[in-house]
C-alpha cells in the first residue's frame, strides 16, 4: 500500500464515520419523535395530560424532561409536531421543546417553545406577522396570531414573563448556516380573542 492509498483510506474512513454519526443522530431523532407522538396520542386518548403533573402544595413540579406537553400546528409551514418538555439536546431531538419553567401553552404567562433550525423549525423564518398557530395541551386548544417577528443576538435578553397568555417560538438564526449560530429568531404570538390577537 503506497502513501496515496493510505491517505485515501483514512479520508474515506473518517468521512464514513462522520456520515454514519450524522445519520444515526437523525435516525435517533426520528425514533424519539415517533415515541413522543405515540405518547401524546396515548395521553390524549386517556385524557390524562393533566395527570402528568403532580401538585406539591401550590407549586407544580416540573414535567419530566422529554415528556410530551403540547402539540404545535402551524398551517402555513405545514408543521404538526408534538412539543416535549425541555430544550436540551435529547428533548430537541424528538421535537420542539418547551422551556422548563415557562407557561404551558394556553396558561397565563409566556410559553417558550424552541427547536432546531435544521429540523422542526427550519421554515420558521417564513412566518410573518398575522400568521396563525394552534396549540393543543391539557389547557385546551388555543389559536395564536403572530404579533412580532425579530432577530436578536444570541445573548440578548428576550424572554420575559407575561400577565396574559403569550407564545414565544425561538430558533437559531440564520437558518441556513453551518456552525454556531450568532443570532436567534424570535416569533411572538398572542391568542386570538374575538378575531384579533389579545394584547395588541
Amino acid at each position: 500500500m503506497d502513501r496515496r492509498q493510505a491517505v485515501s483510506l483514512v479520508l474515506v474512513g473518517v468521512g464514513s464515520c462522520l456520515l454514519v454519526g450524522s445519520a444515526v443522530s437523525v435516525a435517533r431523532g426520528a425514533i424519539a419523535r415517533d415515541a413522543a407522538r405515540t405518547r401524546w396520542a396515548e395521553l390524549e386518548a386517556q385524557r390524562s395530560a393533566r395527570g402528568a403533573r403532580a401538585l406539591v402544595g401550590q407549586a407544580e413540579w416540573a414535567i419530566a424532561l422529554g415528556s410530551p406537553v403540547a402539540r404545535l400546528l402551524i398551517p402555513k409551514l405545514d408543521l404538526d409536531e408534538v412539543v416535549v418538555e425541555g430544550v436540551g439536546d435529547a428533548a430537541l431531538r424528538a421535537g420542539p421543546g418547551h422551556m422548563t419553567g415557562s407557561a404551558v401553552p394556553g396558561d397565563r404567562g409566556n410559553s417558550v417553545l424552541s427547536a432546531h433550525r435544521d429540523r422542526h423549525f427550519r421554515s420558521l423564518g417564513e412566518l410573518g406577522v398575522g400568521d396563525t398557530l394552534v396549540t393543543e395541551s391539557d389547557r385546551g386548544t388555543v389559536v395564536w396570531r403572530v404579533a412580532r417577528v425579530r432577530v436578536v443576538t444570541a445573548d440578548a435578553p428576550v424572554l420575559h414573563g407575561s400577565d396574559s397568555p403569550m407564545l414565544t417560538l425561538t430558533t437559531c438564526w440564520p437558518i441556513r448556516y453551518f456552525g454556531p449560530a450568532p443570532d436567534r429568531l424570535i416569533v411572538e404570538a398572542r391568542p386570538v380573542v374575538g378575531g384579533s390577537a389579545a394584547g395588541e
Partner: peptide, 19 residues
C-alpha cells in the same frame, strides 16, 4: 437544560450534525 427566567436568553438550538 436552561430554564425560563425573566430576562433570559433564547436557548441555543444549533447543532453540529449538519456540519
Amino acid at each position: 437544560p436552561p430554564e425560563f427566567r425573566e430576562g433570559g436568553r433564547a436557548p441555543n438550538t444549533a447543532t453540529v450534525i449538519p456540519t
